[in-house]
Each structure stands twice: as structure tokens, then as C-alpha cells.
């Protein structure tokens, strides 16, 4: 299992999602997020390369968003590709995650 590309700068953490974000990636993603959370910095999820994302990973993203809300940490998802947006729309999650999008 390869790790995620993560950039930990002074003022934020950015983490690049992989092309395929399915069940086999879910636990790795969760552990990576947990690692990010310990830094308590604004979190940017770079989603531009995602071609497929499935429910297990979306659950984790949603939980991450809740954590960020609770701890008042800035959380954004950058450059959601269409496949990502479609998945959010299909599953009924767009109202929670779509507003977090940032375009570059």
C-alpha cells in the first residue's frame, strides 16, 4: 500500500488523493487523515486526480469533515473532478461536501 503525497507546510497540510479511492484504500486513507489531524492545521484535500471514489472512502471524508467542523479547522477539497462530484451527487453527500470545494 503506497502512502499519500502529503505536504506539511507551516500554515496548512495538503494531501493528494489517489486515482482510485476504493475499499482497499479506505483504511490507509483513514490512518493518513489521523496522522494529519494531529497537526491541527488547515487541511486541503487535493482531489484532482481522482477517477473513482467509492462509499468507504466517502464515509471517511465525511467523518473528517465532521472532525474539522468540531475542532474549527479549515477543511477544503480542491478541484473535485466530475467523477468525484457525480459520486457525491449519487450518494446524496453533495450537500455536505460539495460546499467545501476550492478551485485552483
Amino acid at each position: 500500500m503506497t502512502s499519500y503525497a502529503m505536504v506539511n507546510s507551516d500554515d496548512e497540510i495538503s494531501l493528494t488523493l489517489k486515482t482510485i479511492m476504493d475499499l482497499t484504500e479506505a483504511e490507509n486513507l483513514r490512518l493518513t487523515f489521523l496522522d494529519c489531524l494531529t497537526k491541527k492545521k488547515p487541511l486541503k484535500i487535493l482531489a484532482g486526480e481522482v477517477e473513482r471514489i467509492t462509499t468507504p472512502c466517502l464515509q471517511i471524508l465525511f467523518s473528517l469533515k465532521n472532525w474539522a467542523d468540531y475542532h474549527n479547522i479549515d477543511f477544503s477539497i480542491v478541484d473535485m473532478p466530475q467523477a468525484f462530484k457525480t459520486a457525491l451527487d449519487d450518494i446524496g453527500l453533495e450537500e455536505y461536501l460539495a460546499p467545501l470545494e476550492q478551485r485552483t
Binding site: 464515509q59 465525511f62 446524496g92
Partner: peptide, 21 residues
């Protein structure tokens, strides 16, 4: 589609392969 997210736990407690939605 109406999604129910009420069962989603904190990320620390999540089991990645569990279904919460």
C-alpha cells in the same frame, strides 16, 4: 436520495470497511 449520516462515528473510532451510511 436522502442520505442518513447519523451513524457515522468519529474518524478515530471508524472501521474503514464498516458501513455507516
Amino acid at each position: 436520495v436522502a442520505l442518513d449520516v447519523s451513524d457515522v462515528p468519529d474518524i478515530e473510532e471508524m472501521e474503514a470497511e464498516h458501513a455507516y451510511f
